[in-house]
Design a protein around this nucleic acid. Sequence first.
DNA 1: GCCCGTCTGTACACTAGTGCACAAATGCCC
DNA 2: GGGCATTTGTGCACTAGTGTACAGACGGGC
Lengths: 263, 263
Amino acid sequence: MPPDIDTLLSGNLLLSALRLPDQSLLKPHLELKDYRRGEALFEAGEDVSFISFPLGQCVAALVIGLKDGRAVETATVGHEGAIGGVVSQGSLPAFSRAVVQVPGRVLRIEAPVLQQIKQTSPGLRNLITRYSDCLLAQVLQSVACNASHTIEARCVRWLLSLQDRLDTNVLPITHEVLAELLGVQRSYLTRTLRTLQQQGLIQVRRGRIILVSRPAMEEAACECHGAVKRHFEAVLGAVYNANGTLVSLRATAASNNSMSQAI
Amino acid sequence: MPPDIDTLLSGNLLLSALRLPDQSLLKPHLELKDYRRGEALFEAGEDVSFISFPLGQCVAALVIGLKDGRAVETATVGHEGAIGGVVSQGSLPAFSRAVVQVPGRVLRIEAPVLQQIKQTSPGLRNLITRYSDCLLAQVLQSVACNASHTIEARCVRWLLSLQDRLDTNVLPITHEVLAELLGVQRSYLTRTLRTLQQQGLIQVRRGRIILVSRPAMEEAACECHGAVKRHFEAVLGAVYNANGTLVSLRATAASNNSMSQAI
DNA sequence: GCCCGTCTGTACACTAGTGCACAAATGCCC
DNA sequence: GGGCATTTGTGCACTAGTGTACAGACGGGC
């Protein structure tokens, strides 16, 4: 039995924030797709033909490949966002690779079709603009973070931000992969994770990391996690809550105003 | 004598890439403003009310302030671009601070007015979208760069990217300021600059750094400088050249196509 | 042409993180 | 329930970069 489209839409915070008429405009064009860990949504240099909205637990990342073969993560996108031509509006070559970190499903739409619909829907335009701004904020903060913070703090930040996008405290990732994403040495990361475990923040298992104490993690993380989250709340908080449904992203405080003009 | 508006427009590559009718739409709303080194265009958290187009040699930077008082540069903007609500389209709180690195003049326009004009001008919309994508690319690359490359390589990258925006090889910057922007220790940066001087790449003077051999610098820089530049050329190359005037940004190769749909 | 604040050079002890090699453990598959 | 690939743990030598302190040099302002 094919899943109900409305149920699917509700798996992504952006899509479910749209008013019903806007949702209706999109529905006929949305396509459901399953991704496995490691699969690429698009490659650097390719024209981006689809914009994808991760559903539920699915998490993808924007990754920059370097000459020496490393591939560093630059942004994480889960059910709070969208990936693929969000800023460029499709039709331009992708600068980064998009790869699935946590497998799952996405709803995707052809970029030109989305552009078309945006012409007629201010709500959709507004929503995507707001998300673009948050995506940029996330990346800006990471530039400063990578220039300034220790691997330990960055690692904790990363774990928190993955958990924000899941609803479990068991994070499915190996040291190897995490080290690659952070752009650091695997052996050193193992030692860092050991330290965190000794401090009682996490439990390390083969292929997964279990968060034990979220408050202690937030203490140990660099400020960057909180800074980005606050920006999301300021810019998209009220939007996410607009339809009074899902209040995810583990809202810490009341969502800021500064966006009374609504969507 | 007030400077001729057309001469001013030609000082910014985005503005001068616009077709004449689009330029005419903007002209009545553009305001000329002078900035001194260190002045802020806007502060983090403020609503961004203006979008500014740096003219000639003027260079500004997006800067993220950290708790410990450091302030790391996340993006550089000169006469090839614009700064302030480029992605957010104004009307949202700024996530970063914008500060002038190299003094000069900008043409600025109120964000809501620009939004208004964008409604009626596909060329303007397209241009700003393209630039937004390049800005994002620049920042994405910096995330990976800061995670992976040595201070020496990053420093050389930074010097090159500043020179791209000036037309001189004398860069007006102190070790202190550059170290802050890169998020590194001043004393170590001094040593790094010494090394570069010994290798014959630069000359170090009080308050300025003189590039001696651009080819050697490009050799010593990390790949990031080139990667970002190629993306600018792919996405904006033909646009910058559209009016057949200024061909700046030290074009290395023929500008790529992939954007035949023009602006 | 001298003064003084700012900028640059350098020394030193120290820590964070690299790079590599290999051993040990886990857990999935049959 | 044993075998085996993958993942994790750890040892070690090394380098890059921090943090701090202070001396010296430059050059603009008077």
